[in-house]
Amino acid sequence: MSKTSFRSGNPAPRHLPWYVRSAARTWTCAPPPADVRDFHAGLPGYSPTALTELPALASELGVGRVFVKDESSRLGLPAFKALGASWAIHRVLAQRADRGGGPVRLVTATDGNHGRAVARMARLFGQCAQVFVPRGVHPAAVTAIEDEGADVVLVPGAYDEAVRRAADAASVGQGSVLVQDTAWPGYERIPGWIVEGYSTLFAETDGQLRAVGVEAPGLVVVPAGVGSLAQAAVAHYRSRRSESPPAALMSVEPDTAACVLAGLGRGEPVSVPTGATTMAGLNCGTVSSLAWPYLRDGLDAAVSVTDADSAGAARDLAAAGVSSGPCGAASLAGARAALTGDGAAVRRSALDVGPDSTVVLLSTEGAAANPHLDANPHGDEESR
Results as ranks from 00 to 15, higher is better:
Ala291Arg: 01
Asp300Ile: 02
Ser288Asn: 05
Ala262Leu: 07
Val305Asp: 07
Asp297Leu: 03
Glu253His: 09
Asp307Tyr: 12
Pro254Cys: 14
Val260Trp: 10
Thr277His: 08
Gly265Pro: 08
Gly267Tyr: 01
Ala301Phe: 02
Glu268Trp: 06
Leu261Cys: 08
Val287Lys: 07
Leu249Gln: 01
Ala258His: 14
Ser244Asp: 14
Ala314Ile: 08
Ala313Gln: 07
Thr274Cys: 15
Asp307Lys: 09
Asp309Gly: 14
Ala276Ser: 15
Ala248Arg: 12
Met250Asn: 11
Thr278Gln: 14
Gly281Trp: 03
Ala257Met: 04
Ala262Met: 06
Asp309Glu: 11
Asp309Val: 10
Ser288Met: 02
Gly281Ser: 14
Pro293Leu: 09
Tyr294Lys: 02
Cys259Tyr: 08
Ala257Pro: 11
Gly267Gln: 06
Leu290Asn: 02
Asp309Ile: 05
Ser251Gln: 01
Val270Ile: 09
Ala257Asn: 12
Gly312Ala: 15
Ser304Val: 13
Gly267Trp: 12
Ser304Trp: 07
Ala311Met: 14
Thr277Ile: 07
Val270Pro: 03
Gly285Thr: 09
Ser289Thr: 15
Gly281Ile: 05
Thr277Asn: 12
Val252Ser: 14
Leu299Thr: 08
Asp300Pro: 05
Ser289Phe: 09
Gly265Ser: 10
Pro246Ile: 09
Arg266Phe: 00
Ala311Leu: 15
Asp297Asn: 14
Val272Cys: 12
Asn283Trp: 00
Ala308Cys: 01
Val260Tyr: 00
Arg296Cys: 04
Ala314Lys: 01
Leu317Trp: 15
Ala313Thr: 01
Val287Gln: 06
Gly263Trp: 12
Thr274Met: 05
Asp307Cys: 13
Ala262Lys: 10
Asp309Met: 09
Met279Val: 07
